[in-house]
Design a binder for these strands. Structure first.
Lengths: 403, 403
DNA sequence: AGGATAAAGTTCGCAGTACGAACAAATTCA
DNA sequence: TGAATTTGTTCGTACTGCGAACTTTATCCT
């Protein structure tokens, strides 16, 4: 039960009732389509007449469309309803330190087109180029309307001002990306941290079992990010910066982290950590110092390749990384008892090796009565990009803001 | 924005609108009382006529009562409205390992009576006694109605079954406390973990500044518990067991914890930890082994007394405890970016010494852009007991469950 | 004194909504 | 051909908030 925030509440009007019920209807169609009005009546518990009225309105607004006629053993045949995926398009943008990917998606979140471009060091120049690409994409894929632009960022936005305030990997200063994009395209723009986007993507599109309301996404790359969904909604914290569990101290006298502290989770369990473990193991083994410079060029992808070839040192390094990954996830499981933890990143490619280690460490270290599933994501699913699209679709499919 | 949970949703009816608006009204009166209908119109943004209709209904239902007539420089004088605190009573129960406190509260959460009784090892026998005490209290303080019984527990309840499943400090087995109390008294019963109760108490009654929607309560006694409120509501996790941050590993090869792991936050920062630090410091200093048995009798209260007398070793022990308390709070601040962290427990009595250390550690270790305030609670406020009462009042003052 | 002004609170018709019963439509089966 | 069954629509009712007009109760100014 939520406390009503008297500094920011919304009274109900007559229209509120329809708003609530038509969103429920939209979600029921999304889940069960193709579906008849009679079934919607049964799923929702609303009256037949009410379902008719709501669907009529949604069809008029082009959210739904009528489809084929179904078959039943007896009685009048039902007419099926579907989401009208052609109703509108959504632009998703996934900004990463090196590459930016942008995509046009239909309302049903099918990608219609997708392309990439290099991310630049100068935000102003980059945004100008991005805007041109977005406009070209929209021209190339004309839709009845575009609902908005969702952007996944390797950084943080300030909640009240919506400005990008922290993006160390991009090297950008504080920048008002949102207004810039909005003014140039005339579309509503939603920014979100990449880990949060991944969490949203899995929460809305993941093949999860029934009744998942608490989900944490752990993104593993050169750093570690966490996107936290509790009670069915994203946790953004006081100024939108919640989710920096990657910088929680796990080993007080561990290696130095770029954040200034030592022994952060991300310094122990990120891709960079695996590379470091490999380097350490190699130099110890060879007893050489000169070899270190060769190692400097190693990437995490190289480690994974070596693991595939059953390289002992690479396997050991990956094992160490997996151990620390598990330790951090144990913290999340102990503290927040989510239904699901999804792991995002290249590391999932070696999940047959990493998964068991993580599971074992979590089982041993997590103190909980909950049964949390730990799942790797399918890298093909492009969680950041899909999450960016959820940012826009959420406005129509999410629960209305009440009281 | 919340995703609609299709496994557990609620459609809106005409009555939903009134439900939403009258709860808003109730909260506005609670905040601004005494307040006129005209002011409520301005606070809420509803029409004058709507405010009149809603207040009329709330007065008829005895939630509100009309009070004195106000004064204005011009025009008709307003009639003030108040919460009708005599409308109903609430029973709050705070079960702790040694002592159980129970209280009768008015709707305005004023304690009308309060008494204590020993907590027993056998739950069945204890509950029988508790029920007698509750019935006596209700007889001694007749109210128009009793709205329910809220119970704060040093343990965990399973969310689906609502059974008490984990209470190591009580030594009780799994037990269906809720049904037992409910059947005996005929009143609705709400159970909640003690740390969660503290969080609720501070969230609803604390003297916080505007717009706090994310709050974490850290209870420090022989263990450490955390009650987490994010997005304005309690985080219970998948089966109601969220909040065990006390058992997150902070020092992988630290002292053994009763949970089976080593170096848990609570084994480093609880009252018991301070006693252990003192004992260690003392034995190192004296170089004696025999003194340890004397030390075994020391309580945390003794440490606090010694600190007041500026005992060097006690101060050092408390300082160590404060350091670790800060480290754990830094984890919470980094990961969840709450607006406020409230600390509950005897340790707040020495907050002039502990607070600065905690603040320093959090400042140094927490990686965040949020400004989280760390506040000690007033022990006089009886947060567990007040939180138990919130459990019942919440049902009427909380936001309605929609979609 | 008496009218103008101002503010609080009430009344009433309207529009939007869900409900629920009755009805129309479409189909199968005996 | 008609009964049974299921889908979908129509229509009157009740509830709700809106908004304008109205009543009530004050003070201020002429």
């Amino acid at each position: 039960m939520r406390k009503i925030d008297l500094n920011n509440f919304q009274v109900a009007t007559n229209g509120t009732v329809r708003d609530i019920n038509s969103r429920i209807m939209l979600n029921l169609v999304r889940k069960h389509q193709p579906v008849s009005r009679a079934d919607l009546m049964r799923y929702s518990g609303l009256q037949r007449s009410t379902v008719s009225a709501i669907t009529e309105q949604l069809i008029a607004e082009r959210w739904l469309k009528v489809g084929a006629v179904g078959n039943l053993p007896r009685g009048r045949k039902p007419t099926f309803l579907h989401l009208n995926t052609e109703r509108c398009g959504v632009i998703g943008v996934d900004i990463q330190p090196a590459t930016t990917t942008l995509a046009v998606s239909s309302m049903g979140s099918q990608f219609l087109a997708q392309e990439s471009m290099p991310t630049e060091k100068d935000p102003a120049e980059f945004i100008a180029r991005l805007i041109r690409r977005i406009k070209d994409l929209m021209r190339a894929h004309p839709q009845n309307s575009y609902e908005g632009i969702g952007v996944s960022l390797p950084g943080r936005k300030d909640l009240p001002s919506q400005r990008l305030v922290f993006a160390p990997n991009l090297g950008w200063p504080e920048y008002d990306l949102k207004s810039r994009l909005q003014d140039a395209t005339g579309l509503p723009v939603e920014l979100e941290n990449a880990a949060n986007a991944c969490a949203l993507s899995e929460f809305w599109f993941g093949h999860l079992s029934k009744g998942v309301n608490n989900l944490i996404a752990v993104t593993v790359s050169d750093g570690i990010g966490t996107g936290i969904i509790l009670n069915g909604q994203l946790v953004r914290g006081s100024t939108g910066v919640a989710g920096e569990f990657g910088h929680v101290t796990q080993m007080p006298d561990g290696p130095q982290c770029r954040c200034g502290n030592s022994g952060c989770w991300e310094v122990l369990a990120s891709n960079a950590a695996a590379v470091r473990y490999y380097t350490e193991l190699a130099s110890v083994h060879k007893g050489e110092v000169g070899s270190k410079s060769d190692m400097a060029k190693l990437s995490f992808g190289d480690i994974l390749r070596l693991v595939e070839q059953n390289d002992v040192r690479a396997c050991k390094a990956l094992d160490q990384m997996a151990h620390h990954l598990g330790a951090g996830i144990a913290m999340l499981v102990t503290g927040l008892a989510p239904d699901v933890v999804v792991v995002v990143g290249e590391v999932t490619r070696a999940w047959d090796k990493v998964g068991p280690v993580v599971a074992e460490v979590v089982k041993r270290r997590a103190f909980t009565h909950a049964v949390t599933r730990i799942l790797p994501t399918d890298p093909e699913a492009q969680p950041r990009l899909r999450g960016a699209i959820v940012l826009v679709l959420q406005k129509h499919f999410g629960a209305p803001v009440i009281a």
